Simulated assay, not measured.
Amino acid sequence: MQNNYQINIHNYGTFFQPTGYAKLNRSLILEMLKQGANVRYTPCVNEREPISLDPTEVSLLKSLSHRSLQENHLVFYNFIPSYLKKDRNHFSIGLTMFECNRIPNDWAHACNQMDEIWVPSLFNYHSFIHSGVLPHKLRVMPLGVNADIYRPGLSPLTINGKRSFSFLIMSSSGWDARKGYDVLLQAFVEEFREEEDVSLIIKIRASSQDEIRQQQERVNQFVHQIAGRKKDSIIFLSTTDDWSEERLAQLYNSVNCYVLPTRGEGWSMTVMEAMATALPVITTNWSAHLDFINHTNGYLIDVKGYQKLNSELSWAEPNKDHLRSLMRHVYMNQNEAVYKGQLARDAVLNNYTWSKSAERMMDRFREISIES
């Protein structure tokens, strides 16, 4: 009887922004619908018309704004804590995360107003408690990936100038200091000679053609400061359009190794996508992604210290010299790297698909509904 009980959810968040929150909310809600939930959706912010999503999925997601709910429905926020709002008449849950050692003080207050706070990782569980979020309100609910889309064996993209071995870094946002582009550029330029058959591909987004030019100029200036000249081995891909997940999966299939010398992650969607694609991954040995990547199924960059952002918040500073040695090691030991990539995909398939993630959350929704 418990499994046949229909869960009614009023979901608040975002579906169509080019952000990690939108992708995870979209993915979870679509999966919950498959698992029998009745969902109504209210956006937390104004959203533009999506470009790269499946039209059938878009139509379904838009229709959720008009769904009727039973009176005993649950409230489920999937957004940053400053938008969380406890519904006095309904059990209210916030799924959220942060990439620093703590969360801002006003966020902790917002979290404590909710009935439960779900975070995707142990890193967030401890950082939220350290920030004053009440421990009994917290639950770890890991996120996932679509391993049917992000998989090995897809046709690679044609990338002009790409060499026989390529590293990739990618972000759905613009030039974000948190992602460690500066550390990666310096490590790559210092470690690999221009005549070596190795390239670095940087894929990010921009809001305009002018921003793309500014991003490109920033890369060129940074590389010139280090190397004294332009490097054709560095390929910069920035677009104003949203890439479909299928095209992003092809991009992962176009390279040999994913690198993210991040200073902090609330989950790290791109690391999980790369792992699902069976790519070897080099990333920083700190923050949320350590729940699913380790020394066995990936390559972890040493942390040389911590950078304070203000009096309360800090994040990690990845060791550039260790990153250099790991990139060289992967390049020189490609069979080992391929094997680690296979282990990485196995870890994702066993524990971190959207189906498994939604199933865990649906089980908790049922418990709450029965307890209520």
Rank of each mutant, 00 (worst) to 15 (best):
L84P: 01
I9P: 01
N11M: 15
E57I: 06
S164V: 05
D302W: 04
G153Y: 02
S357W: 00
I117V: 15
I93Y: 07
C44A: 08
I201W: 10
Q35D: 10
V140A: 04
A147I: 06
F15N: 00
I370L: 15
S325C: 03
E211S: 13
L309H: 12
V271Y: 00
Y77Q: 05
S171C: 07
W118I: 04
Y41M: 06
I103R: 03
F222I: 09
L279P: 00
R67Y: 09
V330P: 02
T284K: 07
S314W: 09
S254C: 13
E49C: 09
T14H: 03
H90V: 03
C100I: 00
Q250K: 13
G161C: 05
L300D: 02
I212T: 10
N101Q: 11
V140K: 05
I117C: 07
G174T: 13
M114F: 10
P318V: 02
Q221L: 12
S254F: 09
D148C: 07
N319L: 03
E49I: 14
I204L: 15
W107I: 05
F91P: 01
G153K: 02
I149R: 10
R163E: 11
Y258D: 01
R163G: 03
M327W: 05
S52R: 03
V348P: 02
W315K: 00
M327F: 10
I282N: 01
D210S: 14
G36L: 12
E217I: 07
P18R: 14
Q334T: 12
H224E: 11
V255E: 04
S369Q: 13
P135D: 05
R163I: 00
S325V: 05
A206K: 00
A187R: 00
I204F: 06
P135C: 06
T284V: 12
A288K: 02
I204A: 03
G174P: 08
R139I: 03
M361R: 11
Q342H: 14
Y299N: 04
